[in-house]
Amino acid sequence: MSLVVPVILGSVRSDRQGIRAARFLVGALEARGHEAPLVDPADLTLPLLDRMYKEYPKGEAPEPLERLAALYTRADAFLVVSAEYNHSIPPALSNTLDHFLEEYFWRPSAICCYSAGQYGGVRAAMQLRAMLGELGMPSIPSLLPIPRIGKALSEAGEPAEEWLRKSAARFLDELTWYAEALREKRRSGTPY
């Protein structure tokens, strides 16, 4: 069953490596027949959070927020690709996520984290997991950490080693299960 899974990239740095992981995951989701639009804060150029989308009068939010709101309300799940900056999440990711709230409710999220070093961004993922839960899109139990991302994935998002394809397949199987289960449950209503 086809799903809508926005892939939210967290970095705007000029030499960012996360785009490799985002390309890999967009391709893997699309190969499964899912719609996986890339949400790239470098393209969105959102202002620093002053008002959330819901705080604008109807039809008066900046165009990128209107576009994201339309996408997010169609979404079945979210896949977040996060670097680790100072053992935490990148500010561009926090800013991108914080513009919305209700649009995330009752949908699962999944975290792909990465770093140039051996830890694969897992320290940031732990903080991100708490944030995603608070936003109403709790993360699935599994993570997809990618250590040494510059060697693990090509610029085009092709894995250099087979372990990454296998880990990603299990990770996406789990996300798909949660997304299908929660989509079915949303159809019968939510607590509020």
Rank of each mutant, 00 (worst) to 15 (best):
M1R: 13
V4M: 09
V5C: 05
V7T: 09
G10C: 10
S14F: 02
D15Q: 14
D15K: 13
G18Q: 03
I19Q: 08
F24L: 03
F24T: 02
A28H: 06
A31Q: 15
R32I: 07
R32T: 03
G33C: 08
A36T: 04
P37D: 04
P37S: 10
P41M: 09
T45M: 12
L46F: 10
P47S: 12
D50L: 05
R51H: 14
M52S: 10
M52A: 13
M52C: 03
Y53A: 12
E55A: 14
Y56S: 05
P57I: 01
P57Y: 06
G59D: 11
E60I: 00
P62V: 03
E63G: 00
L65M: 12
L68T: 01
A69E: 11
A70T: 12
A75W: 05
D76N: 13
F78R: 07
E84I: 01
S88V: 00
L93N: 04
L93G: 03
T96H: 06
L97A: 04
F100I: 06
L101P: 00
E102R: 14
E102A: 12
W106Y: 15
P108F: 03
P108S: 11
P108N: 07
A110Y: 04
I111F: 02
G117Q: 09
G117V: 02
G120T: 04
G120A: 02
V122E: 12
A125Q: 11
L128D: 04
R129Y: 04
R129I: 04
A130S: 12
M137A: 08
P138G: 10
I140S: 07
L143T: 01
L144H: 07
P145R: 06
P147R: 07
R148N: 11
G150T: 05
K151D: 08
A152R: 08
A156E: 15
E158F: 00
E158S: 06
A160V: 02
E162G: 00
W163V: 11
S167K: 15
A168Y: 02
L172P: 05
D173R: 08
T176C: 01
W177C: 00
Y178E: 06
A179R: 13
A179L: 10
E180M: 13
A181R: 14
E184T: 13
R186Y: 11
R186T: 12
S188I: 01
S188R: 15
G189E: 04
P191L: 09
